[in-house]
Design a protein around this nucleic acid. Structure first.
Lengths: 165, 165
DNA sequence: GTGAAGTCTCTTGATATCGAGCTTCTTGAC
DNA sequence: GTCAAGAAGCTCGATATCAAGAGACTTCAC
């Protein structure tokens, strides 16, 4: 089946036959799919009264394992946002009672952000909802195809994730 | 090579062994790669004094072919933003002299957005820069792998692009 | 023709994000 | 010890985005 990127590439080949636009076949699809996913995630989370950014922070803490706490700096690297944004996010999550700020006993500049019991519950429940949603989207692909796709994507993400960028 | 999603998935398997988190192998990589791409694109466009959103609008018009004009509604579907955002973008591009608004002769509710000569030049030059950048990122993959990846991604994007969503 | 429903673009108000700079504290050379 | 350099998190101003709704116009059934 054709998609929007097929149409996009065909347009460029007509308008700029001198250029090799083959890279767009992969990377424009990645960008567009990500935007569609953002919308789908927003919808899925709204059933749990969570915003996508809230999910990102809560699940980062949940994944850390007991006692479910990380520094703001560690949260930055996992969520790819700036420090000002993270301060704001922690403020709002704390106001909702989903996380709490504690002083870092080993560094008085530092802070630890800890999940509350309710925060942990919300993280667990919304993760299950997200996975259901994602399974529906991936239903187009066989299990082998999903593995192949994951492997190819890993080759593209690894340089970004391993070289400080 | 390992990437951040491998670590993410491993954390979930440790914390929530009861859940099947395999969908994240694909879709979390798509989301994270898209964020990395946004940053890389921003850098590439800054050499041409363009923002990513300006590139998106200008090239949509460029691809339309002579006389390089589309309605705001057509631009919406190509760029996946809301109508308020598009109004704002057209305003700013018009102020910079890269596009101009014309009344639609066949529908008095409507407007046509047309690329100026300078807008067309900027679109053409920045596209070449983007393709160079993207080729560098895709250098990790063989030609056959890129084709395979594009095909798998198409299967995921096609439902979004063809069912009104 | 007329009215209801739909379409297209723009306006408005709220909000999340970024970038740059600041304050407090830690580290390491001397 | 002391001081400079660096790191951690926060504040602030500017900006782009979205959601919801308004206004103008078109379409279609009757």
């Amino acid at each position: 089946m054709e998609d929007e990127v097929d149409r996009l590439v065909a347009s460029w080949r007509r308008e700029r036959p001198d250029l090799d636009v083959e890279p767009l076949e992969v990377l424009s699809r990645v960008s567009r799919l990500a935007r569609h996913l953002d919308r789908a995630r927003r919808l899925a989370f709204s059933e749990h009264s969570l915003e996508p950014w809230e999910f990102d922070v809560l699940t980062a803490l949940r994944r850390a394992g007991s006692p479910y706490q990380l520094s703001p700096g560690q949260l930055l690297t996992q969520t790819l946002v700036t420090s000002g944004t993270m301060t704001n996010r922690i403020d709002r999550l704390a106001k909702k009672g989903l996380v709490e700020r504690l002083p870092d006993p080993s560094d008085r500049r530092g802070v630890l952000v800890r999940l509350t019991d309710e925060g942990k519950d919300r993280a667990d429940r919304s993760l299950a909802g997200l996975l259901d949603q994602e399974r529906a989207i991936l239903g187009e692909l066989s299990s082998a195809q999903r593995a192949e796709l994951a492997s190819l994507l890993r080759q593209l993400t690894a340089p970004f994730d391993n070289i400080p960028g």
